[in-house]
Design a protein around this nucleic acid. Structure first.
Lengths: 101, 101
DNA sequence: GCGATAGTTCGATGGCTGTCGAACCATTCG
DNA sequence: CGAATGGTTCGACAGCCATCGAACTATCGC
């Protein structure tokens, strides 16, 4: 049973969010998720040259930190930024982090 | 020759700022610096039960990440958030991080 | 059912990092 | 000068973490 629980936003701590964002790979991933739409994990456009297992590790870290949710769809997974909830809990944070582009 | 160089804000990378903030001790320190005033490193009010050397390590990390500057004043040091520069380079970030209090 | 595909998990490895105590450095004050 | 004070630096240590390859799980399509 593939089960990919995201924490309740009430339990999400700012410091853990910041720690998750304080890695170049994960910051990049979050950046690609900026528009709020779910993106397949297989996306070529991550622009990252990493193994499947390493990507999986980062996806998990983001999810457990409360930044993303995983949407299972058959044998493929999509990942989505929890934009609304994050904006409510940490106003301005996501926007600031996605800043310049 | 006590020299405590802060990096040029132009060279400061967002991911390094986030990494520096992604630690409970340093997030706390930054929080205490919120008002922009220099605070003595000896401040009792940090609320942290750590050794001198450990505090020194965190102060250095914050400075090298571009978050703070050190002001030497005789044999005492003060630390100050680089609020204006940070606001200009990463609009909204500091405010979002200082959020709830 | 069987092969292929999407993804996770596990174990190993090397590097980074938070913490401490002790030694050291610089400045002030008597 | 000499002692006390504020801080840094160094070495050691333990725990964490990014990365990889290999093994495993589950689903789709023939």
């Amino acid at each position: 049973m593939g089960d990919y629980p995201s924490p309740d936003m009430a339990d999400v701590e700012l410091v853990d969010v910041l720690k998750a964002l304080g890695d170049p790979v994960r910051l990049r991933i979050v950046d690609k998720l900026a528009d709020g739409e779910p993106k397949p994990k297989t996306l070529d456009g991550w622009g990252l040259d990493l193994t499947k297992s390493t990507m999986s590790h980062h996806f998990r870290t983001l999810r457990e930190a409360g930044l993303t949710r995983t949407i299972v769809h058959g044998r493929t997974h999509a990942i989505q930024l929890r934009r609304d909830e994050l904006d409510q809990k940490f106003p301005g944070l996501i926007e600031a982090v996605l800043g310049e582009r």
